[in-house]
């Protein structure tokens, strides 16, 4: 049947696999947005900029830091970056939350959106000024160079790693939030912050750390992306709008929903590229419009 459409099953499998890879990026990013939204009730517009920061800081660690220190051996390699970069960028997120976002909680949530939009402009502008826009290249780490022959396609080892790493992080986040005591505080804080506070939980601290964690997730996705995409100041901006659409489709009610929708839309986008590549840029937006007509709250959302 596929042959009728000019597509061999082999080609289809490989395209689905690639869809899965892109879907894992969507999943990590929309998960971060959903976690932040759950507790802070704001949409983090600087999520894309923070993703870009993750990629850039990793690149800086690999290529610039040794130069700064004048010591070519002092390289922050990929593995170190995978741990350090989310911490650094996450700390930056904590700083933003403590100094700025915090002042807006009593106001309309739209101000949070506007503030993070402004921050996104600043971050993007600064990196643009420092490193130009034509982009930097990040080497794929030695272990992951080369590809695995799956029979129907050559899967680059690094891409396989991306899926494994992204899904692991998603699963761990989901597990912590839905199945542990810490997560139960978090969920309680989401439902009723004042009551939770009354039970002796430090809600403001929890909010700060949650924002930091969401930002760290974005940075983590950035580090994962650095070796495959050109590291450039505008890499996050266009991506984040697609992720917003993903979030609208999924609805931000559940953590699992954010993950599943992210992966599913990656797959759908992959299929579009096979059958009708011209539409692959808009397919997610079209799905968003349809979902809004049929189920305005989103696939996994609850009407508030």
């Amino acid at each position: 049947m596929f042959e009728l459409l000019g597509i061999t099953p082999q080609a289809l499998y490989s395209q689905l696999l690639i869809g899965l890879i892109n879907g894992s990026f969507y999943a990590v990013l929309s998960l971060g947005l959903a976690i932040i939204f759950g507790l802070l009730n704001i949409i983090n517009f600087s999520h894309g900029a923070q993703y870009m920061m993750g990629a850039f800081v990793a690149w800086i660690g690999l290529t610039q830091v040794p130069q700064w220190l004048g010591n070519p051996d002092f390289v922050i390699n990929y593995w170190a970056a995978l741990v350090l970069v989310p911490l650094i960028v996450g700390a930056f997120g904590v700083f933003i939350e403590r100094t700025m976002l915090r002042r807006l909680y009593k106001l309309d949530h739209l101000y949070g959106l506007l503030l993070t939009f402004g921050i996104a402009l600043i971050i993007e502008g600064l990196f643009r000024d420092w490193y130009g826009v034509s982009g930097q290249q990040y080497e794929i780490p030695e272990v992951f160079q080369g590809a695995i022959n799956l029979g129907f396609m050559f899967l680059p080892k690094y891409r396989a790693w991306v899926v494994v790493a992204a899904l692991t992080v998603c699963f761990v986040s989901w597990y912590v939030i839905e199945r542990t005591k810490l997560g139960s505080y978090l969920r309680a804080g989401t439902e009723n912050p004042r009551l939770t506070q009354a039970f002796g939980v430090n809600v403001p601290l929890m909010i700060t750390l949650t924002y930091g964690y969401g930002v760290a997730l974005a940075a983590f996705a950035g580090v994962l992306a650095a070796p495959i995409f050109t590291v450039s100041p505008k890499m996050g901006a266009d991506l984040i709008i697609v992720v917003f659409a993903v979030v609208v489709i999924g609805g931000m009610g559940s953590i699992l929903g954010a993950i599943v929708t992210g992966i599913a839309l990656g797959l759908i986008e992959g299929l579009t590229r096979v059958f009708y590549p011209e539409a692959s840029a808009v397919v997610i937006f079209v799905i968003m419009a349809i979902v809004l007509l049929v189920r305005p709250a989103g696939l996994f959302g609850r009407e508030r």
Binding site: A11, I18, M153, R159, I228, M235, R273, P277
Partner: peptide, 20 residues
């Protein structure tokens, strides 16, 4: 030929078509 969205970031599915 295959047409990719502009600007794009992930070209792998298009490249696979070119490869096959």
């Amino acid at each position: 030929s295959v047409r990719h969205p502009f600007p794009g970031t992930d070209f792998s599915s298009f490249l696979l078509k070119a490869q096959s």
